[in-house]
């Protein structure tokens, strides 16, 4: 799988779930790619630096979301 294909798969899958929730665990993303977690990680890292995914953290755990989505993102917008 190349990066573009991985990104498309993840973006598609996450967009379908936006009505329910906007944050996902790393393992959810690895499952979308049907890869072992360590194999999936470089694709997911790249999606973050490409600006497609962003992190969200409770401080103790971390989640991923499509950039700019989610109710808290709006609430925390400081501009």
């Amino acid at each position: 799988m190349d990066q573009a294909e991985a990104a498309e798969k993840i973006i598609d899958a996450l967009q379908k779930k936006q009505k329910i929730k906007s944050k996902f665990y790393f393992s959810d993303l690895a499952k979308i790619l049907e890869m072992k977690p360590r194999a999936a990680k470089p694709f997911i890292n790249k999606m973050v630096t490409d600006g497609q995914l962003e992190y969200w953290s409770s401080g103790s755990t971390s989640m991923y979301g499509l950039t700019g989505t989610g109710k808290q993102a709006a609430a925390e917008d400081e501009d």
């Binding site: 329910i20 929730k21 906007s22 944050k23 409770s58 989610g70 109710k71 808290q72 609430a75």
Partner: peptide, 12 residues
Amino acid sequence: DKMCEIPLAIAA
């Protein structure tokens, strides 16, 4: 419901 994503609160 305006501030929170309910499934995330439940899962927490």
